[in-house]
Computed example of a mutant assay.
Amino acid sequence: MPIDLPADEAEAFRSGHAPAPMLDLVGLMAAHAVRAGWELGLFDALGKGPLTTWELAAATRSDPAGIEQLANLLHATGYLRWDDGRHANSPAAGTWLRRDSPNCYGHVLSLWHTMIEELWTGLPEAVREGRPRGGFYTWLAAQPELRATFQNLQRGLAGWLAEEVVALTGLPADATSLLDLGGGHGLYSEAYCTAYPALHATVVDSVRLVSGHQRVTGRAADLLTGSLDDGHDVVLLFNVLHGFPSADAARLVARAARALRQDGLLLVLETTASDRAGAAERAFTAGFSVNLWHTQNGRVYPERQIEEWIAGAGCALRERHELTRSATHTLFAAVKGAS
């Protein structure tokens, strides 16, 4: 967590009179400390009440001297506070780092910490030579716990956004067939089928989906080379394009358009670098884009680029919605063959 700097110190760092990279160094230390605390169950132990160093060491089955050093850093970076001489969670830690909290962020931090630590090696050379490392999904497949965390995060995001997305874009009244390219978990397809009783959905991804919804079926295929049926009323490309190089992303939009019937509806949902987002969200989105580039040769694409791909695929943009539930997500709705 960023240090709560007094105004004069903050100004010194902003103006260049103090070394701004020092704050990044402290942030790096804090990230390691928070992950260690998370893995030790430190924040869960303090969720039951304030503890002395010895009590905290016993609760986490740790060495008292080691716990003292770790706790000192967590105090200095705002994750712990003192309560009558005992360690206690700060409001931020109590809300975001306890496993029993509905807002628990520890799994997110653990996943990103590992990705950056293991996959961002060679970043200077990749930038210099224009050759990203790649291999993200191969790396992820070899780590079952992180893969489960990644998949849960995808499902969590879809579960949060699906209601708004479905409400924003009305489907054609006679729609019966939806194709969901790269839909993975199938939650968006399930949400549309629930809202439209006549609709049947097919989710195409590298791994075949087994859905509990009776009108949602899965099929395993490569998104760029696998065969796709055509004549669909609706095609979804939700949070997919950013994982591909630009040429392949354009090809994927074109394939999605070809799978539509004339006047069919193409829906594209993507992370975008929106000015509506707060400073922290904008910074995270920039880092997310670096990670996409280095590990998948993708990136967060500008809205105008996505609109050009849609137009090039023979579809006319009908609507563009900036989601209220996520300031960094934009939904594009386009009609095939419309002028």
Rank of each mutant, 00 (worst) to 15 (best):
L187Q: 13
V216D: 04
R35V: 15
A76Q: 09
A57I: 09
D248C: 05
W82F: 05
M1P: 11
E319V: 01
F43W: 00
Q296F: 08
L317T: 14
A65R: 15
A76G: 08
T271V: 15
V268A: 10
L70K: 04
L28W: 13
D83L: 03
G243D: 14
E322A: 08
E118P: 00
T176C: 06
G16L: 06
E68C: 01
R147I: 02
N291S: 15
A195Y: 05
R147P: 02
P124S: 12
T114F: 00
G186N: 11
G27V: 05
A273M: 11
W293T: 14
L42C: 13
L331D: 00
P50N: 08
V300K: 10
D83A: 13
A338V: 06
Y105T: 02
G218A: 04
L97G: 01
G134V: 01
H32T: 06
A71S: 15
R258L: 07
A220Y: 13
K48L: 14
R35N: 11
L199H: 09
N297D: 15
G337E: 08
F288L: 08
Q69W: 08
T285A: 11
I310Y: 01
L323W: 06
G41Y: 00
T285M: 11
E281S: 15
A279T: 14
G337F: 01
